[in-house]
Design a protein around this nucleic acid. Structure first.
Ligand SMILES: [Mn+2]
Ligand SMILES: [Mn+2]
Ligand SMILES: [Zn+2]
Ligand SMILES: [Zn+2]
Lengths: 153, 153
DNA sequence: CATTTAATTGTACTCATTACTAATTAAGAC
DNA sequence: GTCTTAATTAGTAATGAGTACAATTAAATG
């Protein structure tokens, strides 16, 4: 079993986290694990309505809140007024467009190590017992730079 | 004139940013520059009502949005449902308590340099034209560690 | 299968923030 | 200092993302 499909992986994640396996949870987590679009609740709802026609918006809110509590998923804001969600399987951070709201993943060799070092230092400086972090960088995405006619130096 | 008081400093900031100097803007920016409590709109409103009894909540929202657009002030979320504001005079980042929402400033010698390096690297990796960043570290504040009876390793 | 306990769903509701508009006022010109 | 004008303020109405609630449905366990 060299590779596992997303459905199998997410099933395992739910079980490992002692969460009841419902079709709703399974399909929502699978959607997040296989899309890197940082969707809002509305986006998820629209995307999954074909698969689960009766899926309620409140279920999506509940489910995502559960995932966030367990640390499986993180929340992001891009200024459009709604919360965006991200399955946080591998360490990465985000670049967020201040013009169109696009959120892209960023990482580099050694990011996980830098991140741990940063958390350790912060624990020493603040006395907080650290459980996680968000690193977000803001700016104009390539498309918006063109759209706004901005020349890069 | 070795030292300037906050009122003079903030007056200068408003003028440098070509913002009309109104008592409301002046007092709100002064409040933020002299308090490191990362207040919500309600907190600001309560604190300034003595000084400006007719200060409207919508004015505070408008004013803060203006300051955020100019980059004078940043927005922070701590999970309590409201936005918190921070005068961003000197480079620092934040530790946020996942239990009580307390936000504290963190910095260290060389943070400004690290931050610039991180932005530069992100620009190269993502193609974004970077204008700023938020670094936030989450965990339990010292008080909540005690309150919840948690022993640190 | 029967029992138990948790999850789902639709609706009603909350409340932070924005939209709107009439009244006020800061800035600049004279 | 007065005048002009465009920006700001403040009150209220409207918006809408997210939550609370209670009846229904379904997972887990043995
Ligand atoms: Mn991501
Ligand atoms: Mn701060
Ligand atoms: Zn963009
Ligand atoms: Zn705390």
């Amino acid at each position: 079993m060299a590779t596992k499909n997303v459905a199998d992986q997410t099933l395992r994640v739910l079980k490992d986290n002692k969460l009841r396996v419902t079709p709703q949870r399974h399909v929502i987590l699978s959607y997040l694990a296989s899309h890197h679009n940082h969707p809002s609740v509305d986006t998820i709802h629209a995307a999954l309505s074909k698969e689960l026609p009766n899926l309620g918006a409140s279920t999506i809110y509940n489910t995502l809140n559960t995932f966030v509590e367990r640390g499986l998923v993180i929340e992001l804001q891009n200024g459009d007024g709604s919360t965006h969600y991200d399955y946080f399987g591998t360490p990465h951070y985000h670049a967020i467009c201040t013009n169109c709201g696009k959120i892209v993943d960023v990482s580099y060799e050694g990011f996980g190590k830098d991140e741990k070092e940063f958390e350790k230092r912060t624990a020493e400086l603040s006395g907080y017992m650290i459980s996680g972090n968000h690193m977000e960088v803001y700016g104009l995405c390539p498309e918006c730079q063109v759209k706004l006619g901005i020349k890069r130096p």
